[in-house]
C-alpha cells in the first residue's frame, strides 16, 4: 500500500525534522554557562584605570574579589578592539554612577588587549566611571568561561554568580538584575531606595 509507505517514511523522518526545528531555535554561538548559581571564581587583578567617585581604585593597586564580599559586583570583560563594547559602554558607566551609593562595585576587565590601547579607548569614549583591571594571559577570563567580549557577570553579596550576560548589556538589564540582587539584601535602606526606581 502506497499510503502505508508514506506514513512510515513520515514517521521515520519526524524525529529528524523535530531535531532540526529545535536546532533552529538555538544560537550555535551561545555556550550554556555552568557558572550562574555557583561561587564566582576568585581573582586578584591589578588596577589599570582608576574610575571615578566611590568606585575609584588607585592604578597599580590590586582588586581582590574576596574583599568585595557583601557587595553586588559587576564584572565586565571588554577590549578596545571589541565593537559591541562601544555600544554598552554608556549603559555601564551610567549604571556605575547610579549605583555608586549602594553596596555595589563595577569592575572592567581588559581582555586580550594592550593596556595602552585600553587606556586610549577609555579616553576616546569620554572616560569610564569604574575601575578597569588587567588580566595577564586571560587567566581570569578563562576562569569565568569567557569565549568572547563583551561578557558581563553579576555577582551577589554572597559571592555567587547571579547572572551572566553575553554581548552588549543594556541599562534595563543592569537595573533589573542588580535591583533584584539588592532587594534580597537585608538592610531596609537599600530596599527603600529601590522603590522609586
Amino acid at each position: 500500500m502506497n499510503w502505508k509507505r508514506s506514513a512510515l517514511a513520515l514517521l521515520a523522518a519526524a524525529p529528524l525534522i523535530a531535531l532540526f526545528a529545535y536546532g533552529f531555535t538555538r544560537n550555535p554561538a551561545e555556550i550554556p554557562s555552568p557558572l550562574p548559581g555557583r561561587e564566582a571564581p576568585q581573582f586578584t587583578l591589578a588596577v589599570l584605570t582608576p574610575g571615578e567617585g566611590r568606585m575609584a581604585r588607585t592604578p597599580g593597586d590590586t582588586i581582590r574579589l574576596r574583599d568585595l564580599a557583601g557587595k553586588v559586583v559587576v564584572v565586565n570583560f571588554w577590549a578596545s578592539w571589541c565593537l559591541p563594547c562601544r555600544t554598552e559602554h554608556a549603559a555601564l558607566s551610567e549604571a556605575a554612577t547610579y549605583y555608586a551609593d549602594r553596596p555595589a562595585q563595577f569592575i572592567g576587565v581588559l581582555y586580550n588587549d594592550e593596556p595602552s590601547a585600553g587606556m586610549r579607548w577609555i579616553s576616546e569614549m569620554g572616560g569610564m566611571t569604574y575601575p578597569s583591571v588587567t588580566d595577564i594571559e586571560s587567566r581570569t577570563a578563562i576562569d569565568y568561561g569567557l569565549y568572547g567580549v563583551p561578557e558581563t557577570f553579576i555577582i551577589d553579596p554572597a559571592g555567587r554568580v547571579a547572572y551572566k550576560h553575553l554581548g552588549p548589556i543594556t541599562a534595563g538589564v543592569l537595573r533589573r538584575v542588580i535591583d533584584s540582587v539588592l532587594v534580597t539584601m537585608a538592610p531596609s535602606d537599600t530596599a527603600l531606595q529601590l522603590k522609586d526606581s
Binding site: I31, P32, S33, P34, L35, P41, D143, Y144, G145, Y147
Partner: peptide, 8 residues
C-alpha cells in the same frame, strides 16, 4: 574546564 565552560 568543564566546570567553567560546561560539558560543551
Amino acid at each position: 574546564f568543564a566546570s567553567r565552560y560546561g560539558e560543551w
